[in-house]
Amino acid sequence: MDVKVSLGVSLGAVLAIVLVALVGAQVSSLQLVFGILVPYAAFVIFILGFIYRVVDWGRSPVPFRIPTTCGQQKTLPWIKRNKLECPSNTLEVIGRMILEVFAFRSLFKHTKAEMASGNIIYGGSKWLWLGALAFHYSFLIIAVRHLRLFVEPVPAFVNVLDLVDGMLQIGAPTLYITDILLIGAVSYLFVRRVIVPKMRYISLANDYFPLFLILGIGISGVLMRFFIRVDIVSVKELTVGLASLHPVLPEGIGAIFFVHVALVSTLFAYFPFSKLMHAGGVFLSPGRNLANTNRAKMHVNPWNYPVKLHTYEEYENDFREKMKNAGIPVERE
């Protein structure tokens, strides 16, 4: 797939969604579809799809215990072992996974500063780690912040998060740090894919599409908050209604809201069928989530089956005379 085609297809798809939502927002009967039915459908697809994928992975067995060991194994007691990089029990595996999932440790690994020809050189990949971290955490915080739209009364931690996130106190309504971070990080991840030839070489439409989608979500959200204001009371009425399974459709919510919802719904529905499933897969990845205890504890392969062997008896039959001549003991003379 040519880069231009990949980019065009992805961008086109996102723009099409925006257009459809804009049209839908103008027609009151379609508001029902875009405000209530689509979000519900997307949510159901997301939950069922996610479960299906995880169960599907979970169903396929783990025949062998093959973690990548990145540190000293547990061995003689006087040799210092590396508990996090070469875990030897479940607790240590959890530790390794926490670092992996919450700190992207593997991405960080090759980013330390090094001396080369007299200068400190930082590997370019530190940026990948930073970008990925900024992106995922902003996304998480933004998602949590959105709880205030679905729960009444608003939980205290959401308020605190809100406060912290808006502590720069620029403008009114306050600018959230995470909004900037998210849009910045997604843009970085996107630009990186397009300008680094190596990345362009490996990127597919499946890589550009979610980036455009999330960028669209971010932009529409920011627009809604700062530029094309929507009636927040009505929005909350709708969202609380959705969450409490008593959906209502208040009048006069701006069109931009429907664009935002349509993009989020697309993301939800697309999630289980795409590489975004790495969110679930990372927990199941046998390269990281197993302890290096093969020699201490037997791992059972559910489909282990006997294989044809060249037994010792056959071997001796093949070579008995030669073994005897060479003075190697045999079972039968």
Partner: peptide, 16 residues
């Protein structure tokens, strides 16, 4: 190859 050239230029560590 073009994909490789960028890498040659930017990764300055002589072992990497």
């Amino acid at each position: 190859p073009a994909e490789t050239v960028k890498f040659f230029r930017h990764q300055r560590n002589r072992f990497a």
